[in-house]
């Protein structure tokens, strides 16, 4: 290891120490290199004799009596594990999902699909009617009015289906979040 590599490694290992402390420490170790070089040693030898920078940093930290909270956090800290759900929670979640949520989901899905499809059908009907009577002369006015009426209905239907889809999606999301929360936190 060269002097620079050693100092870089040491800096990294000192982690959360204050800027001034790190500066002081690095200056001491840098001086050690300077004296060693003037005594005829190579950077490599000096670094070797200084010992592992990680161990040196650990010694410094130990000497500092830093509050634990300020020390550099280790990477593999364990996350607190969520408690296992109780059997009552499992029963509740499974039962409500199987007997309430899933039937409700498909019923509502059917309703929403009906609304959306009817809306499309009405709109297409309106356009078709309009196009048809436009082409064939005699009942032009009647056909025109009928077509326009259907198109107006389609616009209304469009608003209806927009809200139906929106609240259907929101409701589904809310339910999933609710079950997840209940599962992890209990009833």
């Amino acid at each position: 290891m060269t002097k620079k590599e050693y100092l870089d490694k040491l800096t990294k290992e000192l982690g959360s120490m204050s800027y001034n402390d790190v500066k002081d420490i690095l200056s001491d170790i840098e001086d050690h290199f300077t004296v060693g070089i003037s005594a005829g040693k190579t950077e490599e030898d000096i670094a070797n004799d200084l010992g592992d920078p990680k161990a040196l940093a650990a010694d410094y930290k130990e000497g500092m009596d830093l509050p634990k909270i300020l020390e550099k956090k280790t990477v593999n800290e364990k996350k607190p594990k969520a408690p296992e759900p109780t059997s009552a929670t499992v029963c509740f979640c499974v039962l409500i999902t199987v007997f309430v949520a899933i039937p409700a989901f498909f019923s509502l899905l059917a309703v929403v699909l009906t609304i959306v499809l009817s809306e499309i059908a009405v709109a297409l009907g309106g356009i078709a009617l309009l196009a048809f009577f436009w082409t064939f002369g005699p009942f032009k006015a009647t056909g025109l009015l009928g077509g326009l009426a259907l198109i107006a209905l389609a616009v209304f239907g469009y608003a209806l289906s927009y809200f139906a889809v929106k609240y259907f999606v929101l409701g589904t999301k809310w339910y999933i979040a609710f079950i997840r929360k209940t599962w992890h936190e209990g009833l």
């Binding site: 420490i25 001491d28 170790i29 000096i46 004799d49 010992g51 592992d52 130990e62």
Partner: peptide
């Protein structure tokens, strides 16, 4: 380190602690 088998680096944290 001439007398006891320790790395040269060992003395620096000690000196720092003694100074503080």
């Amino acid at each position: 380190s001439g007398k006891i088998q320790v790395s040269d680096g060992t003395v620096y944290p000690i000196l720092r602690k003694l100074a503080s």
